[in-house]
Design a protein around this nucleic acid. Structure first.
Lengths: 415, 415
DNA sequence: GGAGATAATTTAGAATCTAAATATAGCTCG
DNA sequence: CGAGCTATATTTAGATTCTAAATTATCTCC
């Protein structure tokens, strides 16, 4: 048996005999998606421009556009005519970026961040909320997530009904079906729980995804990796995660654990700013040639900043710590470069500020370790990378399902 | 209209305004591919069976089938009617597996192997030829490849005109466009050279690919990884290469160097049978507790077999060598498991026989090294894995292009 | 107000699918 | 041996969609 060419059935599962009903409808479906994609790509376009961009006929474009208008995805606009023009005035159609919103969620262990964006990805509002420390029931946690999302929506002046799709990132492996890998501790509650809860409460379509994967999407969308199709993103903080994009697609692996290099022996131990301090304590002892070591700090005072400062002052022990850190990072990047041959590796997460400092050292160490060294950059997206990637994920979902989605009726009417 | 169906432009790249011409023709194109895929999957089918399998209407199926017959891809067959049946006798159509052949080439440094298969992948014949040692001109090398392919064709009783597609594997990175990565030494000659030469001489459509990638395809097709969508294959011999399949797709990376772990520091040095002997020489010295070490062999007599034999005899030095080897392999598999989370890792290449011996040790070491250990198996495909994968690659190409390919006229007539 | 230009709209034609009606070939049974 | 049954093939009608060409509309310039 083949199953090779015809594997479409993302959801329908086992059934054969499904390719069914290809008819002319599908043609319309495809052309509508083509036109919609063109509209989404830029400002209002005249029909003539759309004809050029899509390669379709004038008649077809107009028919499709009117269809899209009636579904709420596009609107006809009076083009701003700069000065007198000759000929019959053209009709213009534009994408209705405000026909709905998407929500991007970054669900961390202690804090949840929500981003609300319009259908072109313009960020409209933010909100975040922390969990009080201590054990929390699943319900309490879901309540926090839900209320943070609602707060962000309110900040954006929109309501729950306006939400067309939701992306959500968690710090655990998530497989292709949106299931959290077994053995992920409390993250497992989000497996079914999150999507079900948010669907039940608000009717939202929720896509769960690994946080590092979302960070990778964000970097490719609006970060250091814009436009690149082969990228890896390291999300290093308290945890070390990786998101890998190959040929423009996220890699997930069998259980969604691809890129989960947290346990790679090569890089054991934390590598975030907290980790730097810890490494300094561990390594300071044997690396210290001077009696004072690490600028004479007491162990409790060893912080990432202190180590950097000490290194700047010429403290050899601190310099040695940074050297070893550079070496560790370089080895991680080297493994990625050799195994996956990305064009660029982006260092992100809490370590980003520190990583900028280490970049030259890492770059210098790399050629010795691999034949195909990738470029390395530090993320400039800050703390919202994951939430931003969640927005991107939701937008992709909207693009894919756009012609099946019923837009919020109110808006549909409103304009 | 003529040039409609052939509008593929897989390579045309940047141009906008290309999605063009979606018309009803495309619908036919899709349904034809669907029916052809169904036919390829199994024996002759009655129209009714095809209706069930494809979900299309009876009328459509018949129309498409007759179309396929006229193009030479299918033939109408008198179904063998077992005993009396009721109702009007059905028409049956079958895939013409003999309408053409594909060729799979394994182009090694010293030897080239060719496999000829029918359009269902049944291997019809083999041939191989070695290069005399010493420097060879590019032309001489291409001559060998060409003549080996022709010999295999002759063995199969077919001619060069019967060839519909050719897959070829080389031991160098090959990017998505079929270009050999720069810096690959003499393999670069195949970059343009091979495809051009074989096209000029015989009109063949040649797909160049990395050998380990092809081995991965072979394992997924007819080897240990049948039906799995997330697999890694290690091809270890004089060289160490890796082929990675994720979500059913080969990973290539930016320059086609994905999986090229030959230079990974973790596993430096050869790991093939030759490598075992070498490691034994290197490591024997310091691992030897007994005065005799390695069963008292002289360095020149140290072979893989000898090391295995010595270990069986209880020689601790030999056992230590094998232990370290197991550890190395385990670490490679661990890196793959952690980074890519495959379901299975297949050990192939020249090391395969030896690897079977080491498997338990590798499996035992793995859980310590990764949280998501993959299954491990040894390849059973032998020395033809790469050529077999090349056949698979060519068949995929045929499936994709089938409706644009003109089948050899002779056969077309013949039946 | 007419000529020219640009674009929208209409019309005709072709390809494709589905669905329903009709025809066909073989078997069974009285 | 012919009527009836059955499963299938073939034909026909209807709907949808595209392209291409002809027609109509609206604006500017002279």
């Amino acid at each position: 048996m083949e199953g090779r060419a015809g594997d479409r059935h993302e959801r329908s599962g086992r059934e054969r005999s499904e390719p069914a009903s290809v008819g002319p409808h599908v043609v319309r479906f495809v052309t509508a998606r083509t036109v919609l994609a063109a509209l989404r790509g830029g400002g209002p376009y005249t029909v003539t421009e759309l004809v050029e961009r899509t390669g379709l006929t004038r008649a077809t474009v107009i028919a499709v556009c009117e269809d899209l208008v009636s579904r709420g995805w596009a609107e006809e606009q009076d083009p701003e005519r700069a000065g007198p023009q000759r000929g019959r005035p053209p009709r213009s159609f534009g994408f209705r970026a405000d026909a709905g919103v998407v929500v991007g969620l970054d669900i961390g262990a202690h804090k949840t961040t929500a981003l609300v964006a319009d259908l072109r990805g313009k960020i409209l509002a933010t909100a975040s909320g922390g969990l009080p420390r201590g054990r929390q029931s699943a319900a309490a946690r879901l309540d926090v997530v839900s209320s943070v999302a609602l707060a962000a929506l309110q900040n954006a002046g929109r309501g729950p009904r306006d939400v067309v799709s939701v992306g959500a990132g968690v710090a655990a492996p998530v497989d292709r079906n949106g299931h959290v890998a077994e053995g992920s501790g409390f993250w497992e509650m989000f497996d079914v729980g999150l999507a079900a809860a948010l669907f039940d409460r608000h009717g939202w379509h929720v896509l769960l995804e690994n946080d590092a994967n979302l960070a990778a999407l964000a970097e490719q969308w609006r970060g250091a990796a814009q436009g690149l199709d082969d990228v890896a993103v390291l999300l290093a903080g308290e945890r070390l995660g990786g998101g890998i994009i190959e040929s423009g697609r996220l890699l997930r692996g069998r259980n969604g654990a691809a890129g989960e290099l947290a346990f790679l022996r090569l890089v054991d131990g934390a590598v975030g700013p907290h980790g730097i301090a810890q490494l300094a304590r561990e390594w300071g002892a044997d690396a210290a040639a001077q009696p004072k070591g690490l600028g004479g700090l007491a162990p409790a005072d060893v912080t990432a900043e202190a180590v950097f400062a000490a290194a700047d002052d010429g403290d050899p022990a601190a310099a040695a710590v940074l050297h070893r850190l550079e070496d560790r990072m370089a080895r991680v990047v080297a493994v990625l470069s050799t195994l996956l041959n990305p064009e660029l590796v982006v260092l992100g997460g809490a370590i980003a500020p520190a990583a900028a400092r280490l970049l030259p050292g890492i770059r210098a160490a790399l050629p010795e370790l691999t034949e195909t060294p990738a470029e390395i950059e530090v993320s400039e997206l800050g703390g919202e990378a994951v939430a931003l990637g969640a927005v991107r994920r939701a937008l992709d979902d909207v693009a894919e399902r756009s012609l099946e989605i019923a837009l919020p009726a109110a808006n549909n009417q409103a304009r």
